[in-house]
Design a protein around this nucleic acid. Structure first.
Length: 482
DNA sequence: ATGTTC
């Protein structure tokens, strides 16, 4: 299948639609949220074909959607949102991704840019020492079988009970850092084994811990509600459920590929394998997915504890500890209520490389954010900049309350490695005042800014389309990578 | 993304 520009209808400057009539298998239209240059960028790759395939998912409602940071993924495009009808619409592990509850959190400090100037290098070294990173890397904590089950059931609460976190953090996590449907008995022994020593570790790839300062505030009122101000130092953490989540995705993808024919579900690409949400296989996957999501929230809470230790070691025990602004998932499925053609419907919302972006008044928001909407954290590529946005009611109308999750890759890892000289890049960033500490040059090369879209363009599209408002722009000073 | 290949 090839998709040409002439197959795509322009709905607005930021919304492009491939109509349902394009392919007989499509059950809903396919929609791209992008400015024209960003759309042109993906015309040559498989993102749009994958999006059209998603539009044929059994039980899909509204439209198959991609955000402006879209790129190719396993079956589903990354940056994709697919809402299927509860309870018998499809659930597909490919629509969630291999790193279940990969997500981002932002911690705020009471220090300003001037306070840390002379200590940036020492801080980045201490962060690197405290936070294990890199492929397959384990941490300090070894979970017993009983403890593992508690982590999978309780998520971030487990870390807090054990003294690795702060009770006041819970209110500032999506779903309070815990999905109630988790069932540890549905997580394989292999997945649990892989997760035994990986709590408190960031892993590799695009995962990182970053120290930033706030370069610009766009919306003073919302920034104030989130506790953000110009020149303030903040810490961003991006990681997920590590080997445990990956193993769960592997286990259930296999199972679901085998089970799918029994339910008469057909999809154009084997990588979109799915079963009805309320089938036994669908329920088992969902409950295991929830367990992996809880592991990821626990992981990010423990990494925050490590970052807080590094903070105290560098700035002294009397410094105010880092405060959690918000933590949100961008690889997850959630049961949510949205309007479909003007009527309320319960949906299984798959977000793969897409975050939630609910507007003001949403009941799950912490009290101090209720009036301004949910924080959306958008990490840019290494050494560029990142954004904090706020969700709006428009996201609920256009995207099932969803937003983009980052800059979005434009070069494959292999292509990036060919083009980038990592030591040179590291030195260049240092000259710009950004200390990058990484376990491997491979990681630096794969994550070079050239491998990513222009985050400014991506965020501008989001802001122009109205699904989220710009609140603040963040510049990195130290990056810890795998 | 991941004890690189589901």
């Amino acid at each position: 299948m090839k998709i040409h520009k002439t197959d795509i209808n322009k709905v607005t400057d930021y919304i492009w639609e491939i109509p349902k009539s394009f392919r007989p298998a499509m059950r809903v239209p396919a929609r791209v949220l992008a400015s024209e240059p960003l759309l042109d960028d993906i015309m040559g790759d498989r993102s749009l074909v994958q999006l059209v395939n998603v539009a044929s998912l059994p039980g899909i409602k509204g439209a198959a959607l991609v955000m402006p940071d879209v790129h190719e993924g396993y079956g589903f495009p990354i940056g994709g949102v697919a809402a299927t009808i509860f309870p018998d619409g499809a659930i597909s592990p490919g629509g969630i991704g291999y790193d279940i509850n990969c997500g981002v959190r932002l911690l705020t400090s009471n220090l300003k840019r001037d306070h840390i100037k002379d200590k940036t290098e020492a801080l980045s070294k201490e962060m690197y020492a405290q936070i294990p990173s890199g492929m397959g890397k384990g941490g300090q904590i070894r979970l017993s079988e009983q403890e593992m089950d508690q982590v999978l059931l309780k998520g971030a609460e487990w870390a807090i009970e054990k003294g690795y976190g702060k009770k006041e953090d819970l209110a500032y996590m999506e779903s309070n850092g815990r999905l109630q449907d988790a069932d540890p008995s549905l997580v394989s022994a292999m997945a649990k084994k892989r997760g035994t020593d990986q709590l408190g570790t960031i892993g590799s790839g695009n995962h990182f811990v970053e120290v930033d300062y706030i370069e610009e505030v766009y919306d003073e009122t919302i920034a104030k509600a989130y506790g953000l101000c110009k020149d303030q130092i903040v810490v961003m953490i991006h990681t997920g459920s590590r080997g445990l989540g990956h193993q769960i995705a592997t286990d259930y993808t296999k199972q679901i590929i085998t089970a799918m024919p029994r339910y008469g579900m057909q999809v154009p690409d084997r990588e979109l394998a799915c079963v009805p949400f309320n089938s036994i296989e669908g329920q088992n996957y969902f409950k295991a997915m929830c367990a992996a999501a809880n592991y990821a929230w626990c992981n990010r809470e423990i990494i925050s504890w490590e970052a807080r230790k590094a903070w105290a070691n560098i700035f002294g025990a009397k410094v105010e500890p880092l405060k959690l602004m918000y933590d949100l998932a961008h690889n997850i499925a959630k049961i949510e209520t949205h309007l479909v053609h003007g009527e309320k419907a319960q949906l299984i919302v798959h977000r793969k490389g897409a975050t939630r972006a609910f507007g003001p008044g949403f009941k799950e928001l912490p009290q101090d954010y209720k009036a301004v909407g949910q924080p959306v954290i958008i990490p840019g590529s290494m050494g560029t900049f990142s954004f904090v946005l706020a969700g709006t009611p428009i996201s609920e109308e256009l995207t099932f309350g969803s937003c983009c999750h980052g800059a979005g890759r434009r070069l494959s890892r292999t292509a990036a490695k060919k083009q980038v000289n990592a030591p040179v890049l590291q030195e260049k960033l240092k000259e710009k005042g950004i200390f990058v500490t990484a376990g491997s040059y491979k990681g630096i090369a794969e994550e070079a800014p050239i491998a990513y879209k222009d985050v400014n363009m991506v965020v501008q599209t989001i802001s122009d389309s109205g699904i989220a408002k710009k609140v603040a722009k963040l510049r990195p000073v130290a990056v810890i990578k795998g």
